Simulated assay, not measured.
Amino acid sequence: MIDLGISKLALIGVVALIVIGPEKLPRVARMAGTLLGRAQRYINDVKAEVSKEIELDELRKMQKDVQEAAHHVEQSVSQSWNETTEELQSIAQEPSTLYSTTYVSSDQLARKAKDFRRKKLAKTSAVPAWYKNRHGQRNHIVSGSARMARHRAKSRPPVSFY
């Protein structure tokens, strides 16, 4: 840009005053200001247009990237869907492999049934509470913090100064 200082502007003003004359100088200065304003507005419009074009190009590029990403996601989902359906079809064709892995022996079933009956009997038995207390069976299970709260010493309320 042109480097104009105060001394250079004063020199240009003096030369314009001599060349144009004192009568026409205000009119020429107004016209020069108007033309300079128009030139600045035109330059600002061109800058705004260029920046809009740049933004549009960026938006188009972003839209293209998003469409590519969506296409890749769609392909991966369809591929995984196809693999899953193939696995399910292969499992459906071979039912013996499914049952062989979940087979439970009769000994395990008998042990589980016995444990279930024993636990149910312990909960609903007709054994008196005094007998359970004497032999260490608990009627109600209480957490450690609840036992501590029950047996904690009671504190006195604070004494007032008045």
Rank of each mutant, 00 (worst) to 15 (best):
Q40I: 06
Y103T: 09
P157R: 07
E83S: 05
A129S: 09
T101P: 00
A10V: 04
S106R: 08
H140S: 04
D65P: 02
N133A: 13
A39E: 07
I54N: 08
K119V: 05
L59V: 08
A149S: 06
F161Y: 09
P26K: 07
L4Q: 04
K154C: 01
K64V: 03
F161V: 12
E83M: 05
V104F: 04
N44T: 07
K114Y: 05
F116M: 10
K52F: 11
R111F: 06
K8I: 13
R117K: 11
I18W: 00
S90K: 15
E68A: 14
L121R: 10
L109V: 10
P22H: 02
K8V: 13
A153T: 05
T34W: 12
A129E: 04
P158R: 06
M148S: 14
T102E: 11
R41S: 13
E55K: 12
M31A: 15
R38S: 04
E86M: 13
S51L: 09
V142Q: 03
A32W: 02
P128R: 02
M62L: 14
G144Q: 06
A69P: 01
H151G: 08
E23Y: 00
R111M: 09
K154F: 02
A16V: 01
V104M: 07
L17W: 10
S7V: 14
I12L: 15
V77G: 06
Y131H: 03
M148V: 03
M148D: 11
L35D: 01
I2T: 12
L36S: 15
G13V: 05
V28F: 06
D45S: 07
A10R: 07
I6Q: 11
I2Y: 05
T84R: 10
A70L: 15
K47M: 12
R147D: 07
R111Q: 06
R134I: 08
V46H: 04
Q40F: 07
L56I: 08
D57N: 11
G136E: 01
S106F: 02
Y131I: 12
T97M: 14
F161M: 09
